[in-house]
């Protein structure tokens, strides 16, 4: 017994060092696995409020580009207005359903909510960004985030007023995407190397693919179908498999994210419930 105490006393600093290392590594790997840690709640509120202050200043530097993107998006939406369509046949009537909130709650599948990005990173292998909108403003984990240009990420964790989003530039990110031309779907991943290139896998070699083809979100993803992901930059034939490895240039410039939309899929829970039932039967 005495020897044990003597040992502990002699190596107390080393033991303390090992203890701290174990604590930090546990925090790290647990966080990556379960995507949330209780203490990040308070810390998230504090860092979030500091970041919101920083953003106030930083926003002015990107106003011009942001404005251009919003105008382009507005133009797209304007082209879909009812006034732009007319039919010579008077028996036909064109109507658009323009209710922003569906009161019956039955037909609407996707609900868009705008949010500000207050913190962002692109240099790490696992990138996250923070939105100034949280559970009080009806953001929930699992919702998806797009910007005016295209796909941005998936909400991981929410506090009352802030939420953290796993960016598409994250090695754990998996997004189902498809080729716009032929419709084959694969998955978008990131290898953690170059923030200007993501990888599209699982596209069979039988499909004709060219540099410059457009990649959009697929019908099976959590994202609304048809949202821009990026443009194919390089086609690589993987020798070991039957699939291509496609290098895709994301439509978003992730280092410049400012205003984004959080999309809530109102029918997701119902779909998940049904699919989980099937899993239980197995």
């Amino acid at each position: 017994m005495r020897n044990i105490f003597a040992f502990i006393r002699r190596f107390s600093v080393l033991l303390f060092f090992l203890l701290l290392e174990i604590i930090s590594l546990t925090l790290l790997f647990r966080y990556n696995r379960f995507h949330q840690a209780a203490y990040m709640d308070t810390a998230g509120e504090i860092t979030g409020s500091i970041e919101a202050q920083y953003k106030k200043v930083n926003d002015y530097f990107h106003l011009k580009k942001e404005n251009e993107e919003l105008r382009r998006r507005l133009n797209e939406v304007q082209n879909q207005l009812l006034q732009n369509f007319s039919s010579p046949d008077s028996t036909q009537r064109i109507i658009t359903d323009s209710t922003s909130v569906d009161t019956s709650g039955e037909r609407r599948k996707f609900l868009y909510m705008d949010a500000e990005v207050v913190n962002n990173s692109v240099t790490q292998p696992n990138n996250y960004f923070t939105l100034h909108r949280g559970s009080k403003q009806s953001v929930q984990p699992g919702m998806v985030v797009i910007s005016a240009n295209g796909v941005a990420g998936v909400v991981l964790d929410v506090t009352e007023n802030f939420s953290t989003v796993m960016s598409m530039l994250n090695k754990q990110s998996r997004i189902s995407a498809s080729l716009k031309k032929t419709g084959e779907s694969g998955r978008i991943e990131w290898d953690g190397v170059n923030p200007r290139l993501v990888q599209l896998r699982d596209i069979p070699k039988s499909v004709k693919v060219q540099k410059g083809d457009t990649v959009i979100t697929s019908r099976y993803s959590d994202f609304p179908p048809g949202i821009m992901v990026g443009i194919i930059e390089k086609v690589i034939l993987e020798k070991s498999s039957n699939n291509y490895l496609l290098q895709v240039r994301p439509a978003n410039d992730f280092s410049r994210l400012q205003n984004v939309f959080v999309i809530s899929n109102l029918q997701r829970n119902e779909q998940l419930e049904l699919e989980n039932k099937l899993k239980k039967k197995k």
């Binding site: 060092f17 701290l20 290392e21 604590i23 930090s24 590594l25 546990t26 925090l27 790290l28 790997f29 966080y31 840690a37 203490y39 990040m40 810390a43 998230g44 504090i46 860092t47 970041e51 913190n119 990173s121 790490q124 696992n126 996250y128 923070t130 953290t164």
Partner: peptide
């Protein structure tokens, strides 16, 4: 806390 990677930099700093 800022980079949302609890423990990563802490481990390196303790070293």
């Amino acid at each position: 806390f800022f980079t949302k990677s609890p423990g990563l930099h802490a481990a390196a700093c303790v070293a």
